[in-house]
Simulated assay, not measured.
Amino acid sequence: MSANTTRPGADPFTERTPRVVAARRLTRRAEREKAGRFLAEGANAVGAALSRGRGFVHELFVTGRAEQAYPELVAAAREAGVRVSPVTDRAAVALSETVTPQGIVAVCDLVDRPLDGLLPTAAAAGPAAAGAPAAEAASPAPVAPAPAAAPSPGAPSPGAPSPDPAEPAAEAASPAPADPAPAAAAAGAAAPAPGAAVAGPAAPAPAARLVAVLVDVADPGNAGTVIRVADAAGADAVILAGDSVDPHNGKCVRASAGSLFHLPLARARDVHAALEACRAAGLRLLGAHGHAETELDSLPLDVPVAWVFGNEAHGLSAEVIASVDEGVRIPIYGRAESLNLATAAAVCLYGSAMALRRSSGG
């Protein structure tokens, strides 16, 4: 703990201090990828980053004024074993990408995870992924063993392994063990009492119901806002596909308002792989674009879905539109030409979120 506490009277780091210079490099994407770390600036982002648990935040740079303004964050950082480094106001400006920095910046691990395994497949998620009632997806009902006659002479001992298919048919046809109690004893386990519940298989991973996929989204503010909306709508994950902006970009981090740290996120250069991962998870792919024939208000939204959003200027490519299950257009009732990406994403994601909650009684 003492290693993380500033020595009394120690001078704060300046913009020329090597640790500050090294952290400043993380404002560039290439350096973030190389180091596997990025900067989270501001009280909101720092608090959310610290909530990820011990070891996620590596260093906290804080001005004297910020330490007085956010003592609980500094205390939480020290409690988590994070190195707390006091800095001058000019050093805070060097680390910041805003006009009026708050004077508190955390060095964090990258938040994205591999696409493979981000979403449970429909098979791995069990019956619930296919829309089966929760009762059907639960463990089997308790079964009481039926009374059985004593085994006949020459029968195989209870609990013995099943005969190998290569063995003679006569051996494979031997009577099965009749009494479950000796079998349990042979395995070193207590026999289940009559009427006791039989343990079922391990609970399957919960099925994904709502995912946002951003394809070639270039503006970090838009990407961060969509991540924030997805988090608010209770989405299971966000995938940034193709040439989408780095979610660790400073503007994206700030626009997400802490949501970047709350929900699973993946990056995938291969758009087709991202879409197929959603399809394998049992999600219906809906592509939002302004020239689709199907309007949002005519579509049933109470099904697990992955909403696919395209580039701010060009929308979804013809190839992506052909790959989704259905294109969807948000109707414009007034005189506005269109909706921007973040607004359209909010309408679509919340439409699905509310319909899913109504259908599940949530």
Rank of each mutant, 00 (worst) to 15 (best):
T5I: 14
E41Y: 03
A183Q: 11
E337T: 15
F38Y: 13
V308C: 08
S298A: 15
S352W: 01
A66N: 03
A178P: 08
A318S: 15
M354E: 04
A172D: 12
G362A: 15
G310E: 11
R25S: 15
A355C: 10
L260E: 05
P180A: 10
G36E: 00
S162Q: 14
A205W: 01
L286G: 01
G53R: 04
A280C: 13
N44A: 07
P127Y: 13
A208S: 11
L50Y: 01
E337M: 07
D116R: 12
R279Y: 03
F61V: 05
A173K: 09
L356Q: 05
V320F: 07
A92E: 06
V82L: 05
A77K: 07
A199G: 10
V215P: 02
P180E: 10
A80R: 15
W307A: 09
V229L: 11
G81W: 01
A346K: 04
A313C: 05
A344W: 02
T14L: 06
G234Y: 04
P140L: 07
V211I: 12
G362P: 07
E33K: 15
P120S: 06
A346I: 04
P153Y: 14
T17E: 09
A237S: 08
V82W: 07
A138K: 09
E326K: 11
S352K: 00
V21P: 00
R279N: 06
A344C: 03
A130E: 14
A45G: 08
G287F: 10
V347E: 03
S359I: 03
I330A: 07
R284Y: 10
L275C: 01
G327F: 03
L301Y: 00
W307Q: 09
I104D: 03
P158F: 06
D116I: 12
G258F: 02
A128I: 10
I321G: 10
P220Y: 02
A202Q: 12
Q68M: 13
A185R: 12
P331N: 08
P86V: 11
A122S: 07
A191S: 11
L110Y: 05
A232W: 04
A123H: 14
A30H: 11
L296T: 02
A92Q: 04
P168M: 12
A235R: 00
A23W: 01
S152P: 08
P8C: 06
S2G: 09
R113F: 00
V324Y: 10
V229F: 10
Y70E: 13
Y333V: 11
P147V: 00
P175K: 09
P247C: 08
E337G: 14
D112T: 15
H248D: 00
A80S: 15
V238H: 03
L214Y: 03
A203G: 09
V211C: 11
T14G: 12
P153G: 14
A148C: 14
G234S: 06
V320E: 01
G250R: 06
G250T: 03
S317L: 07
I239Y: 02
T98P: 06
Q102T: 09
L356Y: 03
E326H: 08
R37Q: 11
A3G: 08
V238W: 02
L349A: 00
A134R: 15
L299A: 07
A199M: 14
A35Y: 00
P194K: 07
L285R: 02
A277W: 01
S317P: 05
V20Q: 04
A313H: 12
P192H: 10
A288T: 12
I104G: 01
P156C: 14
T88N: 06
G361F: 03
V211A: 10
